[in-house]
């Protein structure tokens, strides 16, 4: 900034620092993920204070009805069994891939699409997401899920925090959860899938 009102050298230093930091701002710096409800409960419990607002999330969330679209997707699934490496990406061996689309899903994600890869790194697995035009609304967030081929069990991989890698919890065999799903979740503390999906696809080996 060519600051013609600037005369204080302290201000000049502040301006230079702000410009330096501002010049490096990324979209991600403005994003905020909603903490899971158990976080405050854990803080309150550690402090030996009443944790009135604690909602304990199950590690694997309860099934919710995902609608006819999920059944159609599930019908296309070929169960994977042992996942064999297909190729390498930046994070490890790609063992399955999925094209994610909004077809038949919520109009909230009508412009959303992308791809997903199941990546094996050592003895653990990651989900690598590359999704464009993910809706962002102030009173909700987007959550990433793996769903089994019967659409009965699902595993949350947490809030969507941008394209990249999402850790699949240890003990979860991704070949048994081949449906990759992203949903709009209201910030209401309810731990189940809202049923409002924006993209979905089936990871094929």
């Amino acid at each position: 900034m060519n600051d013609n009102s600037r005369s204080d050298p302290d201000d000049a230093a502040v301006v230079e620092r702000l410009k330096m930091v501002a010049g490096q701002l990324t979209d991600e710096d403005f994003q905020r993920d909603v903490p899971p409800p158990e976080l405050w409960g854990a803080i309150a419990a550690t402090m030996d204070r009443p944790a009135n607002q604690v909602i304990t999330l199950p590690r694997t969330r309860r099934r919710v009805w995902l609608g006819a679209a999920a059944a159609v997707v599930a019908a296309l699934v070929l169960t994977g069994g042992l996942l064999i490496s297909r190729r390498d990406n930046h994070s490890g061996n790609v063992v399955a891939e999925a094209t994610l689309s909004n077809q038949g899903l919520s109009p909230l994600g009508s412009a959303s699409s992308g791809s997903a890869e199941i990546v094996r790194r050592g003895t653990s697995y990651l989900l690598h997401l590359d999704v464009s035009r993910v809706p962002k609304e102030p009173s909700s967030y987007v959550e990433v899920w793996l769903i089994d081929d019967q659409v009965k069990g699902m595993v949350s991989l947490g809030p969507f925090h941008g394209n990249g890698d999402y850790v699949i919890p240890s003990g979860i065999d991704p070949s048994k959860y081949p449906i990759v799903d992203m949903s709009i979740e209201p910030s209401d503390g309810v731990p189940t899938h809202s049923g409002v999906s924006i993209v979905r696809g089936v990871a094929a080996t």
Binding site: V21, T26, D29, L129, N163, G164, D165
Partner: peptide
């Protein structure tokens, strides 16, 4: 740390990178 939304790469970051992430988030 994860990269930007469009590259999605995981890249190593040193302590000064962590400091910069905190600074940028505070400015945002």
């Amino acid at each position: 740390t994860t990269g930007g939304e469009h590259d999605g790469d995981i890249e190593s970051a040193r302590a000064d990178d962590i400091e910069m992430i905190a600074t940028r988030m505070l400015l945002a």
